[in-house]
Structure formats: structure tokens, C-alpha cells
Design a protein around this nucleic acid. Structure first.
Length: 642
RNA sequence: GCGCCCGUAGCUCAGUUGGAUAGAGCGUCUGGCUACGAACCAGAAGGUCGGCUGUUCGAGUCAGCCCGGGCGCACCA
């Protein structure tokens, strides 16, 4: 509602400026410094001042005089050095909120692909992976809330070095056969992904002390490529099992996917050779004949030397396959995967996985018009190579629509390492934070963190709702824990390094997920208590006429609260434009704050005046809906009680 | 050496793309549970926005140069 008026005000000024001055400008709408200045501020006069060579105040006055009436706007005035402050018609505004339901219209002609999570299937997920998934999943929810068609891909590198290292560990260090590994996977006392976490660290450190053992890696990689032998069988076993673990971990966070494109299919279906042909034909890469890159196919432009895409032994580097994959996402490769169902989510949605044999599913993926790759900022160079590949092939518009949705890493504070019993070098102890490392086995496992959070939430729930069944308490605790975790991961903007601190993440007070959940629970409680007292929820539309709404909204307090609650769309739009899920989190917190304030200050059920009571109930219900919707976009559930 | 990111209250972070008197949470101090359960609310203290120059009506925001921290820059992924 607020957002639609913002757009109307903006376009009214834009048109007027166009007609009057012949200048086309995008008219920004800002929030006034103080709430008593009005609801919107238009700084357009400042933008025009330079071109018109006139004082901003004078232009502002002309604009206010000339722009004419705008629906929903009660008054406009010039303020400060040339601001135009806009005051809304409170009665009409609330009337619109009460009656008009503005469902977001579907956006036609766009299909957005978001790739996120992408964890190497060789060990348990850690907290850095959770940040990736939380960001990706929330951005997906944001785009869907805005009406976009979105496809979520989770790329599985099941033939890479990391898998090979764990396989080598099983085979050479543990001396385990495929049957032995199967037995391990079936053993309920073993967390297989945790086992691999340790094994990966063990193998990596063994390589360090015994460089000759690196031969195991190349032997394993060759076996995986040929698809034959025990090592290859082990690789399939391990990768598939770990993928399932990752999916289960992510499901705890309410993160779901549409399709799992796998590197094994990219190899078997020869995506690379199709891309290679294109790259050569269109001269996006060249064959180097001299220097240290002699014998390689090189992509020029990005650096002095260019980037090697095909090694002198004829094998392709990872980034080359990534270019092929990116082409496929846009439907530009001329090849396609086959698919089979991998699992079915609780709501009946099917998660598909790629396969190399023809399948009669008729399923179609890819063919996106825009692609977001959620990958940490350390890989920005390689993402630049991928985009340069598209450009080199002449796909300018697709290159422009390839977005590296980058974010900074999650690191651990030295204090956190101490809490978790992670030994640190003298040097590391002095740092502000320490990078997590799968290779060193240094990090916080995702499931451990969630378990710790649930335990803590359970203590709180049990102390407040000891009468509830254990199962119910656990469910509530779990929703609170996940709410806390998702909010924690989302409250930081993307390019801020999260120095993970366990105690901070475990907080359920202040700017946290549970704070938002608590506000929504309180709103629901009021409505529930009303019914428990034998009263029905009023029919707001018939009981509240425009005069009544305007009367109640003479209270500045109520008006500011209603205003805050009505800005969800506006906040979402800004957050999506900025590509910052953190902005949605911030808004959710402000919304909860406004409601808690309202809740504390005004008795609702006990209000004697009928009109006021109905109005307060309507406000409560409106807050409730906005809180639930915003929390939903963040992937945060609202428990039945707290 | 080159490239990218960061530096804002004691701590952790926002800051609507250059706008009005720089905000929030935590922590500290003070006050509030016989209201719809306090995982809450109210109030106070706390700032040379790393530094210096510049761009202009206006700079936390843009440019240049420094200082400090992080991450990249493979025929690894």
C-alpha cells in the first residue's frame, strides 16, 4: 500500500518535471528526517537545481504548485533548503489497507535462476555453507514474493578433488572397501558426514607430511573419470550419501531446491566439448604456442597473462566447465540434461537430479533470463572469467544478466574457537578472526550449531511452558532456534565478514529472530484470547468506515505504527533492488519493535470504547499479517507459543 | 607488486545509491510484571564516521593520496 503510493508520487513528479522542464529524471522518494515532516520526502528540486540554475527552494515551490493533486496525498509543502514533504490522507490510506488487497502481480517474461549452497559432497556442512544457503534461499523468497518465477539450483561437484581426497582416505588410509563404507553409512552410531569431515582433515594432513601420497588423488580422479573400479564405486557412494546429508541439514533450515545439476552429468553428456567448440569458433579463447602457457587454450583480457581454460595435457580446468554450465543455464549451450526425481518434499514438491540416460520425465530446467550465482567473494575472479566467457561468445545481454551474488566469509573469533575447544596457533590467537578450513577440519558444523541452539531454546521453552508435551516443546524450540540462526546469518549485509561468535548467535534477545517471532506470537495471542472470551473477531470492513478510521488515526501514535506496518512492500522492493536480504531482516525487526511498542502501550481486549477496540483489533491483525509475511520471506516460522 | 572488500558509540553492525539534527542491538546505569505472559517496554550516558586533500549549494556516502585489517591474483576447485 505504502509502496504503491510511493510509486504514484514518484511518477506524478516525473511526468510533471518532464512536461514543465523537459527533463527526464527518476524521482526518488525518501523518508523524512522527522516523522512530523510528513510521510514522504521528495528531493527532486535538488537534482534539478544544477540544470535549471535556480535555487532548489524556488523549484520545489514551482513543483508543489504545478504537480496537481495526487490520489492519497493530503498536502505537500516545501521545507528545508528545497525538500518537498508529502503528507498522506490518513483516512484514505487506512481505508485502502482495510479493503484493497494488493497481491503482487506475477512478473511475465522473466525466469530467474538462483544457484546456491553448492557444497562439495565430501564432508559435513559448516556455518559458512549456512550463510550461503540462508542468503540464497532468502533472496529466492524475496523474488518470489515480488512475483518472479524462480528456479533454485544446487550444483553438486561430485567428481572433484575434494571427493577424491575423502575416497582416497577411505581406500588408502582406512583400508575400507565399498562394502565397509556401506556398513559405516548404515551404522546408526556414526554420523557419516561427520566421519568424512574428520577423514578429509586426516587425509589432507597426511598429504602434507607425505607429498608422494598425492598420487592417490590422481589415481582416484582417473578412476572416477573412467567410472570403473572400486575407487569409482566409492566415490559414488560417498558423494551420494553426503548430498543426502546436506539436503537434510538444509531442510532443517527450511531450505529447498528444484534441481541438483551434477558435475558427473556435465562430464558424461560432454557439456564441455560443446562449450569448447563454441569458444574456439567464436575466438573467445586462443591456442598459446609459446611462453609458459604454451600448449594451453587461454582466455585473454582479464589479466596480463590471460586465464588458462584448457591445460597443455588437454584437460579442462574447473572454470571451463563452469562456463559450460552457465551457458546451459541461459539455454545457450545446445545440450541438455536428463532428469529423475531425487526426493519429494513434505508439500509434495519434487526435487530433481540430473541423469545422463534418457528419462521420460519431460522435465525442463534452465533457460533462465537472469542468473544469480550465490558464491563467496573469494571466487569473484573465477566468476569474472565465466562472465568474460559469455562476452567472448557474443552473449552480451546474458553476461549483463549474470550476477555474482557474492558475500564475505564466515570466520571464527578466537574466543569462539576457545569455547569450542579448537586449538589455535599463537599467531591466530592475536587475530580478530580465523578463517574456517575444511581441509584443516577447522569450523563449526551446521548440525552441531543447530543442535546447540535447539537445546538452549528448549530450556527457555520448558521453563515457560512446562505443561506442554515434550514433542510440542521440541518443535517450538526448533522453530525458535532456526529463527535465531537464520536471522543471525541474514542481519549482516553481504560484504561484511561475519566473525562468528557463539554467544552472540545464541542470543534470543534484542535484534534477533526470536524477537520478531515473539511479536507475531503476541499478536496471535490477543486474537486467540479474544475468542477464548467468547468474542468473535469483528468484521473490520463493515465496522470501520472511513470516518472512524480517520478519527482513530488522528492519534499520531497510531498513525506512525500503521505506517510502519504498511511499509513491507516498500522495504521488500528496496531490499531486492539492493540485493540485500539484510534489509528485509532490518525491516522485520523494526516492524516487531513497532508492534511491541503498540502492544505494551494499549490494552486491546480490555478497551471499552467499541470503535477504538475494533480499530485496535484491526491494527493487531494487520501487524500480525505483516509480521508473518515478512518473517516468511526470511524463512522464519512463527511458533504457536513462546 | 596488482585487484576486490572492510574501517561509523566500549563491542557487533545499519545508514534508502550525494540530502534535513549520523541510527539500532548488545553491554553499562535508572525505572516498569494485579493488563493481551517481561524472550518485553520506557529513560540515560556513549561519535573528530581511520587520516589528509579535493569535487559542490550539500560528503559517513564520490575522487586522489596515505594508515590499519581481510581476501584474491595456478596448467587447484
Amino acid at each position: 500500500m505504502f509502496h504503491s503510493i510511493e510509486k504514484q508520487v514518484s511518477s506524478a513528479f516525473r511526468e510533471h518535471i518532464q512536461v514543465r522542464y523537459g527533463i527526464d529524471v527518476a524521482v526518488a522518494i525518501e523518508q523524512p528526517r522527522q516523522s512530523d515532516f510528513g510521510e514522504m520526502a521528495v528531493p527532486a528540486a535538488f537534482q534539478l537545481a544544477k540544470q535549471l540554475r535556480q535555487a532548489p527552494r524556488k523549484i520545489a515551490a514551482e513543483l508543489v504548485d504545478g504537480v496537481g493533486p495526487i490520489p492519497g496525498v493530503a498536502a505537500m509543502e516545501v521545507a528545508g533548503n528545497g525538500y518537498i514533504n508529502v503528507r498522506l490522507d490518513r483516512g484514505a490510506f487506512s481505508e485502502g489497507l482495510l479493503r484493497g488487497q494488493s497481491a503482487m502481480a506475477a512478473v511475465e517474461g522473466e525466469k530467474i535462476i538462483v544457484e546456491h549452497t553448492n557444497i562439495n559432497p565430501n564432508k559435513a556442512a559448516h556455518i559458512g555453507h549456512l550463510r550461503n544457503a540462508a542468503l540464497g534461499d532468502t533472496y529466492v523468497r524475496m523474488l518470489r514474493a515480488l512475483g518472479y518465477r524462480v528456479e533454485v539450483q544446487n550444483y553438486i561437484d561430485n567428481t572433484g578433488v575434494q571427493v577424491a581426497d575423502v575416497v582416497a582416505g577411505f581406500h588408502y588410509l582406512d583400508g575400507k572397501s565399498p562394502a565397509g563404507v556401506k556398513a559405516l553409512m548404515a551404522d546408526p552410531s556414526v554420523r557419516f558426514d561427520y566421519y568424512c569431515w574428520d577423514l578429509y582433515a586426516k587425509t589432507s594432513s597426511y598429504y602434507k607430511d607425505h607429498p608422494e601420497a598425492l598420487e592417490w588423488r590422481s589415481r582416484t580422479l582417473h578412476a572416477m573419470e573412467s567410472g570403473e573400479g572400486e575407487l569409482s564405486e566409492l566415490a559414488h557412494l560417498v558423494a551420494d550419501a553426503i548430498v543426502e546429508k546436506h539436503l537434510a541439514t538444509m531442510l532443517r533450515m527450511d531450505v529447498e531446491y528444484d534441481v541438483l545439476p551434477r558435475e558427473s552429468e556435465i562430464l558424461h553428456l560432454e557439456f564441455w566439448s560443446a562449450a569448447f567448440t563454441l569458444l574456439k569458433e567464436r575466438k573467445a579463447i586462443y591456442f598459446e604456442t609459446e611462453g609458459k602457457q604454451a600448449g594451453c587454450w587461454v582466455m585473454p583480457g582479464l589479466s596480463e597473462e590471460g586465464k588458462v581454460i584448457v591445460r597443455s595435457d588437454g584437460t579442462v580446468v574447473y572454470t571451463g566447465k563452469d562456463i559450460a554450465y552457465q551457458l546451459w543455464k541461459f539455454g545457450l549451450l545446445g545440450k541438455d540434461f536428463f532428469y529423475r526425481p531425487f526426493q519429494t518434499y513434505a508439500d509434495g514438491r519434487v526435487l530433481w537430479v540430473t541423469t545422463d540416460g534418457p528419462a521420460e520425465s519431460g522435465q525442463q530446467f534452465g533457460h533462465g533470463t537472469r542468473v544469480y550465482n550465490v558464491i563467496d567473494s573469494r571466487q569473484s575472479y573465477l566468476q569474472d572469467v565465466v562472465v568474460a566467457g559469455l562476452r567472448g561468445l557474443g552473449y552480451q545481454s546474458q553476461a549483463d544478466r549474470s550476477v555474482h551474488f557474492s558475500y564475505e566469509m564466515v570466520a571464527l573469533t578466537p574466543r569462539c574457537c576457545a569455547d569450542l575447544g579448537i586449538p589455535l596457533s599463537e599467531e591466530d590467537r592475536k587475530r580478530t578472526y580465523v578463517e574456517v578450513s575444511g581441509r584443516k577440519g577447522l569450523g563449526v558444523k551446521a548440525d552441531d550449531l543447530m543442535d546447540t541452539l535447539i537445546d538452549k531454546a528448549l530450556e527457555e521453552v520448558a521453563s515457560r511452558h512446562g505443561e506442554a508435551s515434550a514433542e510440542e516443546q521440541r518443535q517450538v524450540a526448533s522453530q525458535i532456534a532456526i529463527g535465531a540462526l537464520r536471522y543471525f546469518l541474514l542481519k549482516f549485509t553481504r560484504n561484511s565478514v561475519i566473525a562468528f561468535d557463539l554467544q552472540e548467535a545464541l542470543s534470543f534477545e534484542g535484534e534477533t529472530g526470536p524477537y520478531v517471532q515473539y511479536a507475531a506470537v503476541r499478536a496471535r495471542n490477543i486474537l486467540r484470547k479474544l475468542e477464548e472470551r467468547g468474542e468473535a473477531l469483528p468484521d473490520f470492513a463493515s465496522e470501520l468506515n472511513p470516518e472512524a478510521l480517520a478519527r482513530q488515526l488522528q492519534s499520531e501514535d497510531f498513525w506512525q505504527m500503521l505506517l510502519a506496518a504498511s511499509k513491507a512492500d516498500s522495504a521488500l522492493e528496496r531490499a531486492a533492488t539492493a540485493g540485500e536480504p539484510a534489509h528485509v531482516a532490518k525491516y522485520a525487526f523494526q516492524l516487531a519493535q513497532a508492534f511491541n511498542n503498540f502492544y505494551h502501550q494499549y490494552p486491546i481486549i480490555h478497551e471499552e470504547n467499541r470503535e477504538k477496540k475494533v480499530f485496535l483489533l484491526w491494527m493487531t491483525d494487520f501487524f500480525r499479517r505483516q509480521l508473518e509475511r515478512t518473517a516468511g520471506i526470511l524463512g522464519i516460522r512463527i511458533p504457536t507459543y513462546m
